[in-house]
Nucleic acid binder design. Structure first.
Lengths: 211, 211, 211, 211
DNA sequence: TATGAATGAGACTTCATTCAT
DNA sequence: AATGAATGAAGTCTCATTCAT
C-alpha cells in the first residue's frame, strides 16, 4: 500500500508515477524493472518513490491495484451491466472494448499479464484480493446466464469460469498484439478485423457454454 | 545452444543439469533464478555450467528446447495420433495425460509457462522455432476435424486455434495446480475429479468448435 | 568520460578518486588493477565509482586525461615557453623539473608509462587525441630550432621527434627510478646527480640533433 | 623454468608452444593472456602446458628467455661483432636487421616490449638476468667506441647507454610499427624508407655520442 | 518533502589450476 | 605423458535502498 505521502500528491503526479511504474513492469517484468527508470519516466526523484512506497514490491503491488481499479471504473462507466448476458457482455461492446484497449494499451496489456498469471510469484498473495474482483463479476454473469437459460447447467460454475477466462484471455491477448501492430491509427479494415475476432470469440463462447 | 562440452556429458549428468535449471527457472522466473542454485541442485560446480553453456540466457533457452523435446517424445510415444480427432485427442488420454503431468510435474509446468507466454521477452526469438511445433500439430487436428465434419467451418483455422489453445492451456494449468495440491498420491476420488475436469473441457471444446 | 555525477563532486573527492585510480593502475597495470582497491584508497564505496564512470575502462581513460591535464597545467605555469629553444626546454628547468617529479611522482610515473606506450592496447584509440597534445608542443620546439638554426635540417621533423622522445623518455624514466630510490628527502649530492643527468641528456640531445 | 617434460618434447612442439605463448602475451599482455588460447594455438591440451611449466608466470618468464635466446642466436650468426663499432653495429646491418624483424615480427615485437619495460612488474626480478645480457653487449660497444675514439668520453658509460637505448628502442618500435603496416611484401620504396630511417638513427647516434 | 549521491550485498562470469581418465 | 572436464576464487558491475541536504 502506498504511504500517506503518496495520497497527498496531486492527481497528475500520482498518475504519472503509476503509469511509469506500469510501463516499466510491463516492458521488463518485475525483476528486471528498474526503480531508476520508473522515477525518470515519472519525472520524480528516485528517493521520492521511497517516500511514496515501502519498496519495489509495494510499488508493484499497488500498480496492479491501480490498473485494475482504473479499468473497473472505465468499464463500469461504459456498461451499466445490470443483469447483462454473458455473450452480450462482449458483443455489446465490440468496438468500444477495442477502443479502450486502444486508448489505454498500457493498462490493458498490464492487466492481461496480471490476469493470465505472469507475476504469479508476486501476486499469488494478492490474488485472493484482486483476482476475485474480476472473477466475481464473471461468475455473476455465468450465474445470470444459467438462471435465464442461456448457459448450460450440466457443468459447475467454476468449470465454466475456466472456460470463459481461457477463451477471453487468449483472444484479448491476440487483439492486443494486433493493436500493437498498427500503432497509431488502425484503418477501418483493421477495426473490422478486430470486430470479427470479437464476434468469433463470442460465437465460440456461446456455442461452447450455451445450452 | 549448449557447447560441445555439454553434449559429451553422460546422460545422467545432462539430465540432472537440465532438471535443476528448469526447476529454478520455474520457481523463480528467469531474472531471479540463480546460476549458483542451479549448480548446487545439479551437483556440479558453478563454473561447469559455463563450460556447458555460454551464459544464463543460453542455459534458459536450452531448458525450453529440452523440456519441449522431452515432452514431444513422451507424447508421441503414447498417442499414435495418426489421423486423430481433436476431441479424442484429449479424451483418449484422460488419465494418461494426467499421469504424465503427475510423473513430470516440473516439465509440464515449465512447458505450460513457456507456451502461455511467460518468458515471452526471452522466447519471442525462438518462438517461431519451437512454439510452431506445437501449433502445427494442433492446426492439423483442426484441419482434420473440419474435413471429417466434426469442426465448424464458419471460422478460420487460426481463430479456432486461439480458442483451442485458450481453453486447453487454462484447464491444463488448473489441473496442474490441483496436482500440486495432493503431492504424493492422489486418491481415487481426486483422480476422478481430474478426469471429470478433462471431460468437461472436451465437452466445452466440442460444443464450442463443433458443428 | 566521467558521468555528470563525477563532475558535481567537490574537488577534494574528485582528486582523491583520480589519484587512487592512477596509483592502482600504475602499480598493477590495467588488467590487474582492482576497482575495490581504488575505491578503498579513495575512501568511497565501490558502487560510487560506477556512479562516476561507466566502467573500469572509462575510469582508466579518464585517469590518463586527468594526469595529462594536471601536468600540462603545472608545466605551463612554470615555463612561459613562448618561443623556447629545444635544449633550453630542459636545461632551463633542471632542478625545477626534478622538483615536479618529486612532488608528483605518481602522476609523473603514470604519464611516462602512458607516453612510452604501456597501456597501448587501451590508449591507441585516444592517442590521436592526447598523445598529439604533447607531440605538437615538441614538434613546435623542433621547428623553432630549425628556424633559428640550432637544429639540423637534414632530417625531417618526425625523425627528429623520434630521437627527441626516445632520449627524453629514457632519461626521465631513469630519473624517476632514482627518485623512487631516495624516497623522502634527497641529499644535496643526489640532487646534483639528477642535475648532471639532465645536463648530460641535454648535451647528447644538442650534439645529436644540433647543427 | 620449464619442467623436464618440456625439454623432452620434440623441437617442433617446443617451438609451437613458445610461439603460441609469445603471440598471446604480445597481443593481450600478461594478465589478459589466456592459457586456453595459448594451448589451442599451439595445438596441445591446456593440461599439457601445466606439465611443461609450473604456472602462467613460469611460462611467461620462459617466453622472455626463449625469445631473447632465439634473437641472440640469429644476431650472432649474422654479425661476428668481434670488435665492432657502435655505429657500424647498426649501419652494417641495415636491411639485414629489417629482414630479421620482417622474418620474426613476433619475436622482435615481443623482445622490444620486454626491453622497453612493459611487463616490468613481472620481469623486474629477471631483469638482472636477461636485461643485462643485452646491456652487456651494448656496454662493450660503447667501451670499444671510447677506446678507439669514436665515442665521446666526457660522459660515463651508463649515461651513454641510456642515450643509446632510448634512441634505438624508439626507432626500432617505429620501424616495427611500419613493418606491421605493409604486412606481406614491402615495396622497394618502403624498404628504402626503412633504410633511411636506420641511417637517420645512426647519424643521430653518431653525432650525439660521437666525439 | 524532494532530491540524488552513497552504499554494499549479491549476481554473473572468467579463467588459472587441478585431477581423473 | 596427454587430455579436457571440473573447480571455485576472485573480479566486475548492478541496483534496491538509505541518508544527508
Amino acid at each position: 500500500m502506498p504511504k500517506r505521502t503518496f495520497n497527498r500528491l496531486d492527481d497528475d503526479k500520482k498518475e504519472r508515477v503509476m503509469r511509469a511504474a506500469i510501463e516499466e513492469f510491463l516492458a521488463r517484468g518485475y525483476e528486471a524493472a528498474k526503480i531508476e527508470t520508473i522515477a525518470q519516466t515519472a519525472g520524480v526523484a528516485k528517493g521520492s518513490l521511497y517516500q511514496y512506497f515501502d519498496d519495489k514490491k509495494d510499488l508493484f503491488l499497488y500498480s496492479v491495484t491501480w490498473a485494475i481499479e482504473y479499468f473497473m471504473k472505465s468499464i463500469d462507466r461504459q456498461t451499466p451491466l445490470k443483469d447483462m448476458d454473458v455473450y452480450d457482455y462482449f458483443l455489446s461492446s465490440g468496438r468500444e472494448r477495442y477502443e479502450l484497449m486502444k486508448r489505454e494499451p498500457l493498462l490493458a496489456a498490464f492487466s492481461l499479464d496480471v490476469a493470465s498469471g505472469k507475476y504469479n510469484s508476486l501476486t499469488r498473495e494478492i490474488n485472493s484480493e484482486y483476482k476475485r474482483i474480476g472473477e466475481e463479476y464473471e461468475l455473476r454473469l455465468i450465474a445470470n446466464g444459467k438462471r435465464r437459460g442461456t448457459v448450460r447447467d450440466d457443468l459447475d460454475d467454476k468449470t465454466l469460469l475456466l472456460f470463459f477466462q481461457g477463451v477471453t484471455e487468449k483472444f484479448t491477448g491476440e487483439i492486443m498484439a494486433k493493436a500493437e501492430g498498427f500503432k497509431s491509427d488502425p484503418t477501418e479494415e483493421q477495426l473490422c478485423g478486430m470486430e470479427n475476432l470479437m464476434k468469433s470469440m463470442v460465437s465460440l463462447l456461446k456455442q461452447g457454454m450455451g445450452r
